[in-house]
Design a protein around this nucleic acid. Structure first.
Lengths: 352, 352
DNA sequence: AATTAGCACTCCAATTAAATGAGTGCTAAC
DNA sequence: GTTAGCACTCATTTAATTGGAGTGCTAATT
């Protein structure tokens, strides 16, 4: 019956484009008459109606109910994001004030990044701290806090600092401590955390001699610190922006969305997914509706970017908003922020 | 005109009590007929109506609108909390599973405390980390991460650990570093942070000799770390519980409430207020409606407790919910949790 | 003097009805 | 292939209707 479902002729594309743009701008379902005037096609609303019926059958747009205008489907958004949307290399306006001081603690920088992104976009944002496993050990030190407690301090390549208290059974004298510190540093310095294997450990124990037990304990503590799930820090901001969009706050799912941003654990899968996501060149991923890794966000769109501090140390920045979001602006913002973060590590590297 | 406004006779109290209890249970404005049956006073609804008119004139109850039942006013709640409510010494049921491991990091403990409290009460909760200024320095150490960066690690009495990177102009040799560490520890150990005065500083500089500059830098860093406002950590949980109570989620103020819990800064004043609040014996404060230190919460009730790790190291735990909250349960929960936290420091003290 | 029954009155909340209007699908004409 | 025209659909808005819970007041009762 007539319609070649695999083929979108130029006119259909133009109409679809117009529908989506209009819907993004107004948030209202868009009707045939609007398009008839909005475009330069000089077609009557009746013709548009016919085309729209086709587009609907092809799955690019849907009707919220009979006798309403059309809104884009996930498939429609996808086409828009992939092909229709123009990547505007617009001026990096407000983002500019985001100047990162290299001396700042990473944590602070990331917190600020999330905040800024939220303020700029009016969506909910998240920023994950770089994954540790690729992060190299820069410095490590044991100190005796008292007779039964050691404090292990680990500085990572990205200038993140971890602390861990270690209970020990017998006191350690200063000399031993010094030796252990030297051993730890020479053995572990420069290693990525997932490069510490059994061989390394065995070697260290051998060298530690009678103190091999301490070495074990330290390594255990180290592993524990690293693998603590809660330490997969995620910073969020602007979660309450979700309330601004009726299409989300309507359902009671607003609660689960906000919860997800409060208990950050749930967001983890998003970060993981984003990090492993196939980069389409720009380093930016877009998940529309059901494409989202998190079921809670099936009525949202999620846009993420992966920043790379160098040497494989990666983290994720992302925003969560309604499917009807300003993709151009969001992707633009993410790109800017990404580039800022990408730079930061090199800077402090030059400097040290 | 009859009514002695200063006097609440026994019957009025009984009726007021019944009104409040009923309202707490149902959430609906309560009418005269209900009270007539609910109480053992054996009075007709007409009599109750007369009494209710009096109670309203005295300001203990209000009518949402003409021809509706009555609900308690702030003044009514206040009376209830202060005098009517029975302090039930009930079994510490679900709270029991809250066992704090002394080796855990404080941060983790507090986070968990907030979570548990929220799960137990179904309100939004907050837990503040102990204020630093009363906290004593237990251990302090400088380490050379590289030629231009020192890492200062400070362990406080409450087992909290702070890190601070310090940029230095000239490299330090090991021996100097060792001396400095000894100096720092002997001079500062056991001091509360607000006990470090100019005298101490001058003395240290003198002893440091040619390295007095470093001492300055270290102390600056120390002060900076301490005074960082963001470091007044507050942990929250269950903020989304706010959505459960229509009397709050009705207004758009739900957004500002949630924001307050997201950007924790705003909650600071609550903590401050609570810490300085005059303890009425139990160490628990109740803020009803407008009594709240935070304007955003004028339609809520806030209940806080101050925990004391000993030696004046104090923190705050609190919950925020609708004025129509289960005060008994909440205060009970807070008491339990408070006592748990009060104990924790002593335990680790015994142990060290 | 305190209590109660009775009744008119108020006002919210829920229901129903009607009006509006944007938008469609279809058909017949261009 | 395009367009004008028209009947039809359906969410949204507004208005009118009703029900009922609850009050305040007055007059009767104890």
């Amino acid at each position: 019956m007539g319609i070649d479902k695999s083929e979108l002729d130029e006119r259909k594309v133009k109409i679809l484009d117009a529908i989506i743009r209009n819907y993004l701008a107004t948030g209202e379902p868009v009707g045939s008459r609007t398009i008839s005037k909005y475009t330069d096609l000089n077609l009557s609303s009746a013709t548009i109606r016919n085309e729209m019926a086709d587009l609907e059958e092809m799955g690019y747009i849907v009707q919220p109910h009979t006798s309403a205008g059309r809104i884009p489907s996930d498939k429609g958004y996808r086409l828009y994001v992939d092909h229709l949307m123009e990547e505007k290399d617009r001026e990096i306006s407000e983002m500019k004030e985001f100047v990162i001081e290299k001396t700042e603690k990473m944590e602070k920088v990331l917190k600020q990044a999330a905040k800024l992104l939220a303020a700029n976009t009016n969506y909910a944002t998240l920023v994950s701290a770089p994954a540790y496993n690729q992060n190299k050990i820069k410095f490590i030190q044991l100190s005796a806090v008292n007779d039964s407690q050691l404090l292990a301090v680990i500085v990572l390549n990205s200038n993140m600092v971890k602390n861990q208290m270690i209970d020990i059974s017998e006191p350690l004298d200063n000399e031993t401590l010094l030796k252990l510190n030297i051993l730890l540093n020479t053995s572990l310095n420069g290693l990525a955390l997932d490069q510490i294997n059994l061989g390394t450990i065995a070697l260290m124990k051998e060298q530690a001699g009678i103190h091999s037990k301490i070495v074990s304990e330290v390594l255990d503590a180290l592993v524990q610190t690293i693998s603590e799930t809660e330490d997969l820090q995620i910073y969020t901001s602007g979660a309450t922006n979700i309330l601004k969009y009726p299409e989300l706050s309507d359902s009671e799912s607003v609660s689960s969305l906000l919860s997800a941003f409060e208990e950050k654990e749930e967001l983890q899968s998003l970060v993981t997914e984003s990090l492993s996501g196939d980069e389409n060149g720009t380093g930016i991923q877009v998940y529309i509706g059901n494409e989202s890794p998190i079921q809670t966000m099936k009525d949202c769109s999620v846009v993420t970017a992966t920043y790379d501090l160098g040497e494989g140390i990666k983290g994720t920045i992302g925003i969560v908003g309604p499917k009807r979001m300003d993709y151009e602006k969001v992707m633009d913002n993410l790109k800017t922020l990404k580039s800022q973060l990408d730079g930061i590590y090199k800077k402090s590297e030059d400097d040290s």
